[in-house]
């Protein structure tokens, strides 16, 4: 098995070396596209973060019986009885000397209405629904963009691998002639695609470092985002190789 993997690696590298100019050109184009994806992924992360903050800052007004109900809650404000009386008066008119419950503004969390001692929970759900919908919509479009990116990388890699396949027609003919299975014929090209992908990732990293150095950017690209871009490049080229031979 080890010998077979070494053989695939060698053959993949030979294909890369034989067409090194084209291979580098394709890797460079993929790296350029990766910059667009990286910028997009960074925007996605930033917007997601802001939306998550907006959602996490969602607040609720609770009516409670005594202070023990507030235990464990993120209390933003406890209203004084006079304040409550004034607010209700503004809403429904004079309420006289009716005994009022205690009122507090707390950070929203799931299950708040089931906390012992809390009689009622009131929230501005419209804001939450808006941000949730915005987040869902945004992620949906982000997914479409990623699929589009994968498709573009796949098409570029597919064309390049097909060219390599034609350039290695003799080798493929001999492989078939001597009894190599179709899978065995595919794998050198899969490894070739892997080398192209790794080259494009290296070029991408150099570009990111170059940009960061040139503009003295203080931000650090999150590893998660980098990993996502790399996985997309590897996945796209891998699938292209499987489809193109």
């Amino acid at each position: 098995m080890f010998d077979v993997i070494v053989f695939f690696l060698k053959e993949g590298f030979l294909i890369f070396r034989k067409n090194w100019k084209q291979s580098f050109a394709v890797a460079f184009v993929i790296a350029l596209i990766a910059q667009i994806l990286l910028g997009f992924e960074l925007s996605v992360e930033e917007l997601k973060r802001k939306l998550d903050i907006a959602l996490s800052e969602d607040e609720a007004v609770i009516w409670f019986e005594d202070e023990s109900a507030l235990k464990g809650l993120d209390v933003r404000k406890v209203f004084a009885p006079d304040e409550v009386r004034k607010m209700l008066g503004d809403l429904i008119g004079d309420i006289g000397d009716v005994a009022l419950p205690r009122v507090a503004l707390v950070k929203w969390r799931e299950g708040l209405d089931r906390v012992e001692g809390i009689r009622a929970v009131y929230r501005d759900t419209a804001k939450r629904v808006f941000f949730s919908k915005l987040r869902q919509l945004f992620l949906k479009y982000a997914l479409v963009f990623r699929i589009l990116f994968i498709a573009v990388v796949m098409i570029i890699a597919f064309i390049q691998i097909r060219i390599s396949v034609f350039a290695h027609a003799t080798e493929i003919e001999i492989m078939r002639l001597v009894g190599a299975t179709e899978w065995f014929i595919k794998w050198p090209f899969v490894f070739y695609a892997f080398f192209v992908a790794v080259t494009s990732i290296l070029i991408s990293v150099l570009m990111w470092m170059g940009v960061a150095t040139a503009f003295d950017f203080s931000f650090v690209i999150p590893v998660k985002v980098l990993a996502r871009v790399c996985v997309v490049i590897l996945f796209s080229t891998f699938v292209s190789a499987l489809l193109s031979v």
Partner: peptide
């Protein structure tokens, strides 16, 4: 039908390697 950029040994060995022999 020989591969021009491989040696005599590599050309012959190629037939075995593509069949997965050690």
């Amino acid at each position: 039908k020989l591969i021009r950029d491989r040696t005599v040994f590599e050309n012959v060995a190629f037939a075995l390697r593509v069949c997965g022999f050690s």
